[in-house]
């Protein structure tokens, strides 16, 4: 099964392998703001209802996005260890 950014728990780290191109504009947007293949991503905060929206640490930046959009970020299926 494909693992997505939305599958990560709080403070769990994953590595981006690809983007879901269903909405090509969205994937461009995600890339432009700073997500790329090989980046480590860690969700740090979730909203009150349905864990929506979420904030994600990527390369030292903190980016807030809705789960619908986070869904387009595909991760390596085995989560890497949390680096201390």
């Amino acid at each position: 099964m494909i693992k997505r950014l939305t599958d990560l728990a709080k403070n769990e780290t994953g590595t981006i392998v690809d983007f879901d191109e269903t909405d090509p504009r969205l994937s461009v947007r995600l890339r432009e703001i700073g997500f790329a293949e090989g980046d480590s991503v860690t969700p740090l905060h979730f909203g009150l209802f349905g864990k929506n929206p979420m904030s994600v640490r990527v390369n030292g930046a903190l980016i807030a996005l809705r789960r619908k959009d986070a869904h387009a970020i595909l991760l390596k299926s085995i989560p890497t260890e949390v680096t201390p």
């Binding site: 703001i33 980016i63 996005l65 809705r66 959009d69």
Partner: peptide, 10 residues
């Protein structure tokens, strides 16, 4: 409508 996608500044 599309989402949020906003950088949270330090």
């Amino acid at each position: 409508s599309s989402g949020l996608l906003i950088e949270l500044p330090s």
